[in-house]
């Protein structure tokens, strides 16, 4: 039982239950306003019937002609609302907008190489690793997790404009690039 509705600037006043979780970053006000002033249709919230935010997704459309695509910037679900399929429905939403509105070739996202739970989840949604980005999550030195902690997988899922699946490849995990090549 969750309501899917657009993310609004004023949701910043009520997303604490989601953002106080350590895996969710609270960005500056400009960050949210930037997304909303450019891609409001790619930002959505799931909330309970009495208005508590359960999770949200923020996305954007980017790339040149050859790799025009939807990008998942942030997707998060508050701990108490996990295992309800909310992430799946938010990803579906973003894919639909990337496909129908922005006519993107694919949707992509970045995930920590060590985050096996998330990687399996995205694989379940039809995403596959396109490349491994070195030191994507900062290069402050390796923690206990080693390279997997600071490297990211760039995962992609082709949309209807890419029926030949040109935007993905089977051996993505072995394709290494550095962080400044992708940002």
């Amino acid at each position: 039982m969750s309501i899917i509705r657009p993310f609004r600037a004023t949701d910043q006043f009520k997303f604490n239950n989601v953002n106080l979780d350590i895996w969710t970053e609270t960005y500056g006000i400009s960050f949210y306003l930037h997304y909303l002033s450019r891609w409001p249709d790619m930002c959505s919230v799931q909330e309970t019937p009495d208005g508590k935010i359960m999770g949200y997704v923020l996305g954007k459309a980017e790339g040149g002609r050859e790799d025009w695509h939807g990008h998942v910037t942030a997707i998060t679900v508050a701990p108490e609302y996990r295992r309800l399929g909310l992430a799946a429905s938010m990803m579906k939403f973003l894919e639909r907008v990337s496909d129908d509105v922005y006519r993107g070739l694919f949707v992509d996202l970045y995930v920590r190489c060590e985050n096996q739970i998330a990687i399996s989840m995205y694989e379940g949604f039809g995403y596959s690793v396109y490349r491994r980005v070195r030191e994507y999550y900062g290069s402050l030195g390796r923690g206990a997790g080693g390279a997997d902690e600071e490297d990211a997988f760039d995962m992609r899922k082709p949309l209807s404009r890419d029926p030949m699946r040109r935007s993905v490849r089977p051996n993505g995990r072995t394709m290494l690039v550095s962080a400044h090549d992708v940002s």
């Binding site: 657009p6 609004r8 600037a9 004023t10 006000i29 400009s30 306003l33 930037h34 909303l36 002033s37 450019r38 409001p40």
Partner: peptide, 22 residues
């Protein structure tokens, strides 16, 4: 007035749905 700058941007990018909420 950072927010005001984004209201300007929302006009430029024709994101009318956001302006009142900004």
């Amino acid at each position: 007035r950072k927010t005001a700058d984004f209201i300007v941007r929302a006009f430029q990018g024709e994101k009318y749905s956001q302006i009142a909420n900004f």
